Simulated scan of single mutants.
Amino acid sequence: MLAVLFATVAFSIDAMLPAMSEIATELSPQDTNRAQLVLMMFMAGMGVGTAVAGPVSDAIGRKPTIMLGSTLYIAAAAGAIFADSLTLLLALRFVQGMGAAGPRIAGTALIRDLYAGREMARITSFVMMIFIMIPAVAPALGEVIIDAAGTWRAVFAAFIVFGLVGVIWVWLRQSETLPRERRVPLSGERLISSATEILENRQVMLCTLVLTLGFGQMFALLSSSEQLFDQAYGRADSFTKWFALMALLSGIGTIANARYVMRYGMRRIARAAYAMQIVSASLGLLLVASGALHGDAAFYGFFAWAVSVFFMAGVTFGNLNALAMQNMPHLAGMTASIVAALSTLGAVIIATPVGLAFRGAPTPMMLAALVCSSLAWFLMGKLRD
């Protein structure tokens, strides 16, 4: 069920993908690219929320933080149903992202309370196996909901139901993993001291920067995925099916990581995944620039590259979080908060201009993947297991 809590973020993004064109037509007909901001604002809100969720979870416990965040998430989703302008919808999506940060950060800290190092990476990979199923079905589920209700607003009702399931399960089944004697009271001096310790930790900051680069390239692709399938390859009608297949295939990465991380180590596996993406993005750019592939072949080439991006995410993200937190058990919530806040906001800064640069071809996304993966591969060489 922890995977479902983590998947709040993925579901809140991927279920919106089939609604993007309708939102653009209804709320931003003069500039349809602005509809992408519905995704970006959610991520920005989550970035801000993560800066708060960690210290709060260290002070009051993991379970209450998950409950508070989920409540805010549900309230914002309810308001979004009635949004009559893109500006209001973006504001509510920002608040919804802030709420989603609670389950994400407190859930990560909860795992760190119980596990460490490679074992944490292995457990996180098992969680990711279930987590990956949400992106696989979310666009198709969003499409079914929109078709049945006749409006994109119904997707937000699904968010309410999804949030309620998480809240009820946590309330009834999840025990608190942070005992009172280990809690860190909220105070300005203590927060500054804790944040300083984390920000001065070279391992944590390197992992955060690599996560930013990985998350940025993935989200740049994700935010433009519907437009790519529609405008670049003429597959709007089958978008949800292809997206589901892409997510399921990329889930092989999490399975492989869970199986081999204890043997080969977190750093070695993650660095190999970025090396793979350097090759994949370079080949993709070469094929697009040369025009060597046409029609169905061009689409299948793009699809293979897109799968490689999500495969890379499945292999690297759990390992990098474990690497960042393995030496910070006394500040698990705060560390998870700072890592997630900086990497999420940094990813938005990377992904926003890349997404807005879309002009009918995947070139900006592939170029971003090449640059980000090259930098990530270089930085991974400076990390230790």
Rank of each mutant, 00 (worst) to 15 (best):
Y274D: 01
G107L: 08
A51C: 12
F239W: 00
V315Y: 02
V339T: 15
R104W: 04
P185Q: 11
R267Q: 11
R122P: 14
S175D: 10
A292Y: 02
G216M: 11
G360P: 00
N201A: 10
V137Y: 00
F239V: 06
L323N: 13
L331Q: 11
I338Y: 06
N321H: 14
L383C: 13
I198F: 09
T212I: 14
R153T: 13
F42P: 11
Y274R: 06
T177F: 00
L172T: 02
A116M: 08
L68H: 09
R180W: 03
V354L: 09
I123M: 08
C372Q: 01
I338W: 03
Q96C: 05
L293D: 00
E143N: 03
M380V: 09
L2P: 11
R182T: 07
A138H: 04
A368I: 04
L172H: 03
G284K: 01
L379M: 14
L206R: 14
E22F: 15
G97M: 12
P103S: 05
F229H: 13
A232S: 12
F299G: 09
V210R: 00
T87D: 06
F82T: 13
M129T: 06
A75F: 15
I349V: 09
C207T: 08
I145G: 00
A83P: 10
W169P: 02
V315G: 11
M266F: 03
P55T: 10
A116Y: 11
L209W: 02
A154E: 00
A77D: 02
L110Y: 11
A258F: 04
L178V: 11
H330F: 06
A15P: 02
F159E: 00
Q326Y: 10
A247V: 03
S308K: 01
F42C: 10
K63H: 06
G79K: 10
A340W: 05
F310Q: 07
R271E: 04
C207A: 13
T363C: 02
T8L: 15
M365S: 08
L221Q: 07
M41K: 09
M246Y: 09
E181M: 13
P18R: 01
T196C: 15
L323W: 02
Q231S: 08
L90Q: 05
A24I: 09
G234Y: 05
V144A: 15
P353D: 05
F126S: 07
M67A: 12
A272D: 12
S280I: 09
Y115R: 03
A140V: 04
A340N: 14
I145W: 00
Y300K: 06
A369C: 13
V4I: 13
A368Q: 04
K382E: 12
F156Q: 04
I255Y: 10
L323A: 11
S374Q: 06
R384E: 15
A324W: 01
A292N: 02
A116C: 10
S343P: 10
A306S: 14
A77Y: 00
F94Q: 01
V371N: 05
G214W: 00
A220N: 05
L287V: 14
S224M: 02
R104I: 15
I350M: 07
A76Y: 07
A272Y: 09
A148D: 00
A332D: 03
L114I: 13
R359A: 13
L88E: 10
L164F: 09
M365R: 00
S225T: 12
V155W: 02
L68A: 15
M262S: 14
T87A: 11
R271Q: 05
G188N: 03
L206S: 10
G284N: 09
K63M: 12
L191S: 11
A195V: 13
